[in-house]
Design a protein around this nucleic acid. Sequence first.
DNA 1: CATCGTTGTGTACGGTCGTACGCATGGCTT
DNA 2: AAGCCATGCGTACGACCGTACACAACGATG
Lengths: 198, 198
Amino acid sequence: MTAEPTAEPLDRPVRRHDPDRRQRIVEAAIGVIAEHGVAGTTHRLVAAAADVPLGSMTYHFTGLDDLLAQALTVHAERMAVKYQAHFAHVRTTEDLVEAVTDLVHGHAGADERDWAVSYELYLAALRDPALRTVTETWMRRSRGVLEQFVDAATARGVDGLIEGLVMHEVLSTGPVSRTETHEIIARAVRPTTEGAAQ
Amino acid sequence: MTAEPTAEPLDRPVRRHDPDRRQRIVEAAIGVIAEHGVAGTTHRLVAAAADVPLGSMTYHFTGLDDLLAQALTVHAERMAVKYQAHFAHVRTTEDLVEAVTDLVHGHAGADERDWAVSYELYLAALRDPALRTVTETWMRRSRGVLEQFVDAATARGVDGLIEGLVMHEVLSTGPVSRTETHEIIARAVRPTTEGAAQ
DNA sequence: CATCGTTGTGTACGGTCGTACGCATGGCTT
DNA sequence: AAGCCATGCGTACGACCGTACACAACGATG
């Protein structure tokens, strides 16, 4: 036998030189979180997904918590960018209502996987104070986007509404009425000062 | 020394006879979930919390998944009862707005721990189809409570709004304005048919 | 009171995890 | 070209997990 019987003859270079290995690990971690959740994310799973040796995990990151925090941070920033882009074309109030409705019904840059990771982040932040800054930054940013078009109070309402409706949409098995969603959003953005206060 | 040095002399009866041990384990499981999350819930932790031997876990339940499912189911039903009770006194629309505002600001039967468990349920249901029936029942019930006072579309809006606002409230570190919340809710329950549609 | 069947539990096993660290490795200096 | 040192990785260790199962402890039965 010409080949060594000990192991498969090195299908990958023993010492791969890629400067952005760190980033690739973080990317892989986001994917693993989306699929298995934060709780199901392990060093070995991420290493396999990123095609790097297990030793790279503790070499590039302090620990699993560190990796998770960085992955969730990157995800949150990426979501913020998508969020902002989704509302970029909005001019009128009706544009806004339409854009929010689209967002709720999934016609946006973010798919179900992205939302799953976001909820993982929320739950993780609920227990880990170090992640609170990530969620707070994300929420401040998304609120800020809406405040370009409506006042602060309305922005909070619409933001909360988006959060709740998307969550119910993701968890729901049956389809939801787009017309109904549109109607709900429209109420939220209609200012009270023009209507009857009481 | 008169006492045996092998172990502490049985501070609890070796064979305790309590018929509702099952229930106590489930209760303990809910507590453990609230504190450590679904991911951090283990047989040993629950057994210690319920003060039962480890062997009781596999004796009373098929496995950890079974225990978690039952615990989350009980919690969801309990939350539904609290939810219903919170809206029991509502008569007018203004009552409803006030009640929802109270709910968001924590002046209800449910505290932060309860919400944490609920979010654990949501996330678990996102990945485990067997838990979907639990979340669906819960959502249908909470929706039904609101539908006693408003139409179905409005109920969906208010329900989503509650979900989002509570989540933001729980995750937020700073205080939120109660007046603002009241204002947001009021918009959601105001029917469009009376105002200007466009 | 003796026996037996049932009910419940202590314990151990196989597996997976995070993490540390001795050591191979290859680019850089001389 | 040759040696060296920082960079990076294979591997192993201790801890903890879910789960199964032999067996101890009881109440019922005669």
